[in-house]
Computed example of a mutant assay.
Amino acid sequence: MAELYGESPLAAHADVFARASAPGSVRLSEVAFTAQVVLRVDPKGPAAERIGTALGVMLPNQAGQVAHTDRLTVLWLGPDEWLLVGPEGGAEPIEDALSEALDDEHGAVVDVSAHRTIIAVSGPSSRELLAKGCALDLHRRAFGPDQCAQTSLARAGVVLLCRDAELPSYWIFVRASFARYLADWLSDAAAEYREVVPHAASGRHG
Rank of each mutant, 00 (worst) to 15 (best):
T69Q: 11
L84T: 06
H68V: 01
E88G: 02
T69A: 11
W76M: 03
P79N: 13
R40Q: 12
K44I: 00
P79Q: 09
G89N: 10
V57A: 15
G52R: 13
G45W: 07
I94Q: 05
L72N: 06
N61V: 03
A63R: 13
A54N: 08
L59V: 06
N61Q: 15
P79C: 13
R50F: 05
T73N: 04
T69I: 05
V57E: 10
Q65H: 13
P60W: 02
V85L: 06
P46F: 10
W76Q: 11
D70T: 12
P79H: 12
G56H: 12
L55P: 04
H68M: 02
Q62H: 12
E92S: 08
D42I: 06
P60Q: 04
V41S: 10
L72P: 00
P87D: 13
P43H: 12
P79Y: 12
A54Q: 09
P79I: 12
E81G: 05
L75W: 07
R40C: 07
V57T: 15
R71Y: 07
W82Y: 08
T69R: 02
V74P: 00
L77F: 01
V66M: 05
W82C: 02
I51V: 14
V57W: 01
P46T: 00
I51Q: 09
L59H: 08
L72R: 07
G90D: 14
L72T: 10
G78T: 05
E49V: 13
R40V: 11
D80S: 15
L55E: 07
P46M: 10
G78I: 08
V41A: 14
I51F: 03
G64L: 07
E92L: 07
E49A: 15
N61E: 14
I51P: 01
G89M: 09
V41D: 09
T69G: 13
D80T: 13
L59Q: 07
G64S: 09
W82L: 03
D80E: 15
L59G: 06
P46W: 04
D42M: 09
